[in-house]
Design a protein around this nucleic acid. Structure first.
Length: 442
RNA sequence: GGAGAGGUGGCUGAGUGGUCUAAAGCGCCGGUCUUGAAAACCGGUGAGGUCGUAAGGCCUCCGUGAGUUCAAAUCUCACCCUCUCCGCCA
């Protein structure tokens, strides 16, 4: 959520940022009108409330005095009658004020975050800027197969049966496939907790409306989510562990010395993928349910951009250790997510597509989510609370890492050389063949 | 699913219609004392909104929402959450 105070304090920043986001600036006029109306209504009702409080105290005094002096009773009754009308008036004004505040909040909740100054301006992904490339692209003396062909031949993936169970855009991992997916998860979690200093969390995979609103998934993107309704209880399946992790400190003030906070979590992620019909329908690339290891940071504002660089490096490290070639792209303003102020995408090389595909997205949301979720901190004891900055990144999307391993490390026979870093998780697992210190899927 | 108890400031906990402007203790901050620290003593100590250059004033917040009343932490209703016991269950 944007800071309404920017309207008065730095309208230029607001205009510039929203323009970069391709938002019609007319909305600002509406906000200004509502904001001024709100202040007037507050002043009016607060003054009347002060009057009411004063009258009530007066009546209390009169009642005490009337015990010794009955002649005051009539006067007290008159005062009560007079004050009654005041209460009714205040009630009406409060309803009006509430309506104004609701309208204001509705608009604010639908406005995206302002892009950081370093973010390139542009309406779509063609304006993204490649800033780094890592690794050698594999050279094949044959036409590389895609992960679906490889996986189904090895009998570690079965999309037909997944479709029978749940419909399109679901996956079924079998045997060594399931073990490989699990090994990737554990490898990523171990790396982030042991080497990078993240605390591992197992969060709820279903959350309530407030939690979804805190990270910015609601109210605007309800159509992207799976929702359950049991009795009168409404719950949403998380589209990423970012949602529960970031909301852990919702509506709280973090005491001095606790920041920075680093969380990592494995979770399944559920996305409706409405509006992506026909896109990536084949295989593991775009599913209603996929696995992901997520990174979340809660930090002091001054440090958030340094933390974004570090977090991106933490995600890169996973690909480096797996030996998978990738590049990093700085997203332009039009391609960034709703809550982000700056985003790096990490894209892994997929031979079957002859292209880099997103496998991680690392964002600094600055105080956008903190303001929505009311997450504050104290720099020192007694200091006035300030909003924290929140960051999130994939570390990594497990299914896509699985795809990248299958496709980059295949040979002509459709056999897969497993990255050695996974040996400790897979050595001895059924379906893996060992040659020297090299594990194979054959 | 059934029965019962309860939700008050950072924490413990008092408060059953009007000096509640929320007691007390703990914690925290500052000070006195001390070579230093502890103890003791003294003082201070929540969040948000709004007006104001400021000092400061006013308003709101006792799980959430609605209601009764001139006046609600306190009374009424609904909901949420926590705990205990029973049932079911991994």
């Amino acid at each position: 959520m944007l800071d309404i105070k920017l309207l008065e304090e730095d309208i230029g920043k607001l205009e510039q940022g929203l323009k970069k986001r391709c938002i019609d600036l007319l909305i600002l006029e509406h906000l200004k009108t509502q904001s001024q109306l709100r202040k007037k209504q507050i002043q009016l009702t607060d003054n009347l409330k002060a009057e009411l409080n004063k009258a009530s105290r007066e009546i209390a005094q009169l009642k005490i005095k009337s015990k010794t002096d009955p002649s005051i009773m009539d006067f007290a009754r008159t005062r009560v009658t007079e004050t009654r009308a005041l209460g009714v008036k205040i009630h009406d004004l409060e309803l009006e004020l509430q309506a104004t505040e609701n309208k204001l909040r509705e608009v604010l909740l639908e406005l995206p975050n302002l892009p950081n100054a370093s973010v390139p301006e542009g309406g779509d992904s063609s304006f993204n800027v490649e800033i780094k490339k890592w690794g050698e692209l594999p050279k094949f003396s044959f036409t590389p197969k895609d992960h679906v062909d490889i996986g189904e031949r090895l009998e570690i993936l079965d999309f037909e049966r997944a479709g029978k169970l749940s419909g399109s855009r679901f996956s079924l991992y079998l045997g060594a496939g399931a073990a490989l997916e699990r090994a990737l998860i554990q490898f990523m979690l171990d790396l982030h907790t042991r080497e990078h200093g993240y605390q591992e969390i197992i969060p709820p995979f279903m959350v309530n409306r407030e939690t979804m609103t805190g990270t910015g998934n609601l109210p605007k993107f309800e159509a992207d989510l799976f929702k359950t309704q049991v009795a009168d209880r409404e719950l949403f399946l998380i589209p990423t562990a970012e949602v529960p992790l970031t909301n852990i400190y919702r509506e709280s003030i973090i005491e001095p010395g606790r920041l920075p906070i680093y969380f990592t979590a494995y979770s399944p992620c559920f996305r409706s993928e409405a509006g992506s019909y026909g896109k990536d329908v084949r295989g593991l690339i775009r599913l209603h349910q996929f696995q992901k290891v997520e990174l979340v940071k809660i930090v002091e504002p001054e440090k958030s951009y340094g933390e974004l660089e570090k977090m991106t490096q933490n995600a890169e490290k996973v690909l480096q250790l797996l030996g998978l070639p990738y590049r990093i792209v700085l997203l332009c303003s039009g391609d960034m997510g709703f809550a982000a102020a700056k985003t790096y995408d990490i894209e892994v090389w997929l031979p079957s597509q002859n292209a880099y595909r997103e496998i991680s997205s690392c964002s600094n949301c600055e105080d956008f989510q903190a303001r929505r979720a009311d997450i504050r901190y104290r720099h020192i004891a007694q200091a006035k609370p300030r909003f924290v900055h929140t960051l999130n990144g994939s570390g990594l999307a497990v299914g896509r890492a699985f795809v990248a391993v299958l496709e980059n490390f295949q040979n002509e026979n459709g056999e897969i050389a497993i990255p050695k870093i996974l040996n400790r998780y897979l050595d001895g697992s059924p379906g893996f063949i060992k040659e020297g210190d090299q594990l194979w899927l054959k």
